[in-house]
Design a protein around this nucleic acid. Structure first.
Lengths: 133, 133
DNA sequence: CTAGGGGTTCCTGTCACTGGAAGGTCAATG
DNA sequence: CATTGACCTTCCAGTGACAGGAACCCCTAG
């Protein structure tokens, strides 16, 4: 199957598949005309990558997960560790964004948002002490 | 004040300040020796930018906020709109990450994480239907 | 024979910096 | 006066994970 079919089968854009070949995540065969030839196994790998990426795993994590997937002697502990580290990063990111949300929420609440120029949001960004809080 | 002092005063790395000049967020004067010369006003702007960036505003948002900050005839509604749009992006991102966390949590919980090879995390990534859930 | 819809490579751009190389300038010291 | 070391300058490359587009090749149908 050529790249268009592989894209349809895996749900990944052809551009992305070419990129994955560039960084050696997949290594499709080549036909006489220079076209990539994807096996079922290649397509399966691509779908695996698509799902791993949609869970937010980095490309390097994907590389690790893929090699674990293909290793019949893997230990599930290794997979779990990768997933847990990823989960930790996500949780830290959530906490960080929630803190931002809290700050922004407060600033927005205090700004009347009309056609007058005075604005607690700008005051805060300018480092001015807040007299209304 | 030269770039090192401006960096210390604003809390931004000198590299970042040079970059901000590159993209015309600040326009410090130049001395006879070619060194940048930052006024108090410049330093204040840099600190403003640092705070806006730390709230997660994009550079383009910062550009807008800075011009609003410097416009005495601004309407606070304009500032509030920028902030609300940013807040919306943050909230969408939080929701997205929370969904990822939920999925990952479940997968991790079901993986025994020992030295055996069978692993629900890999099974899920491989697209296999789950028999234990 | 031509048109179109595949495919190919290569280059550029994204975002907001960061690191590093090669070299100029300044203030203090020997 | 020469040197040292801290500072400054510019320019180039890399980050992550692609996306857009140009220029060109290939295959099939009409």
């Amino acid at each position: 199957m050529n790249i268009g079919e592989a894209a349809a089968a895996s749900g990944l854009p052809a551009k992305t598949i070419r990129y994955y070949e560039d960084i050696r995540l997949v290594r499709p065969a080549r036909g006489a005309n220079g076209y990539r030839e994807f096996s079922e196994r290649d397509a399966h790998k691509l779908a695996f990558l698509g799902r791993a990426r949609s869970l937010g795993f980095s490309i390097e994590d994907c590389r690790t997960l893929l090699s674990l997937y293909e290793d019949r002697d893997r230990a599930s502990a290794d997979v779990k560790r990768v997933a847990r580290e990823h989960l930790g990063r996500i949780e830290r990111k959530i906490a960080e964004l929630q803190a931002l949300r809290g700050t922004l929420d407060q600033l927005i609440a205090r700004c009347h948002g009309d056609d007058r120029p005075d604005c607690p949001i700008l005051d805060d960004l300018a480092g001015e002490p807040d007299r209304t809080r």
